[in-house]
Amino acid sequence: MASGSKWTYSQNKRFEDVLAEYAEDTPDRWHNVARAVGGGMTAEEAKWRYELLVKDVELIESGRVPFPKYGTPPGEAAAAKAAARTGRRG
């Protein structure tokens, strides 16, 4: 999992979930995050990726960058299609 490579939706989601598991005051946070994300990520890459995420959020919140248009994750897209066919929601 090279730090400069493009991540999939699932990889980004996993990274965000793991960040929530390991709060800022967690000892060895970046080692724990890297290990939990997997894919050969190092602690340094985990911290670098987090810093990029923080910068992106700051740019979006300041209005300097438009809010990204995320696609629907594959599992959710299939569930939405199935619900539409049966007339059910949620």
Score class of each variant (00 low, 15 high):
L59Q: 13
G38K: 00
K47H: 11
G87V: 06
A43D: 09
K81Q: 08
L53R: 04
T42A: 03
P68T: 13
P73K: 06
A82R: 07
V57P: 00
R49K: 15
G63C: 13
D28P: 10
K13T: 10
T26Y: 10
D25Y: 12
Y22I: 09
E21V: 12
K69E: 10
A34R: 00
E16Q: 15
P73L: 07
G39E: 10
L19M: 13
A36I: 00
E45Q: 04
D56H: 08
A36M: 01
P66V: 10
M1I: 07
A82D: 14
W30F: 07
E51G: 04
E76I: 09
G75V: 11
I60H: 14
R35I: 05
D56F: 05
L19F: 05
E61F: 01
S10P: 05
E16S: 04
K55D: 14
G87E: 10
R85V: 12
T8A: 06
G38I: 00
E21N: 08
E61S: 13
K81F: 01
N12S: 01
S3N: 13
A36C: 03
K69G: 12
K81R: 14
A79V: 05
P73N: 01
A77F: 04
P27N: 06
N12P: 00
A84H: 10
L52F: 09
W7L: 14
G4K: 14
R85C: 09
R14D: 12
M1D: 03
A34H: 10
P68C: 02
D56W: 12
T8F: 06
Y22T: 02
S5W: 08
Q11Y: 01
G63P: 08
A77G: 04
S10L: 11
G4P: 03
K55P: 02
K55A: 13
K6D: 12
K81P: 00
Q11N: 15
A43W: 01
E51I: 08
A79N: 00
G87T: 13
G39Y: 04
A83K: 10
E58S: 13
A23N: 06
E45Y: 15
P27M: 07
E58D: 11
S5G: 13
E21T: 13
Y70L: 13
E44S: 15
G40F: 01
G40A: 04
V18Q: 12
V65A: 05
R85P: 11
V33E: 07
F67C: 09
L52W: 11
P66I: 06
A80Y: 03
G39N: 05
E76V: 07
G75K: 00
E58W: 03
E24P: 07
Y9G: 00
M1E: 06
A84D: 01
K69T: 04
T72R: 07
S5A: 14
T42N: 09
V18A: 04
Y70K: 11
G90D: 03
D28W: 03
Y50H: 15
P27Q: 13
G38C: 02
L59G: 01
A80H: 10
P68D: 07
A36F: 05
S5V: 12
E45I: 08
E51M: 15
E24I: 14
H31I: 08
A77I: 01
R14F: 04
K47A: 10
S62P: 06
W30T: 06
K81M: 06
A2G: 06
G71K: 15
V37D: 05
H31V: 15
M41V: 02
H31P: 00
N32L: 12
G38T: 10
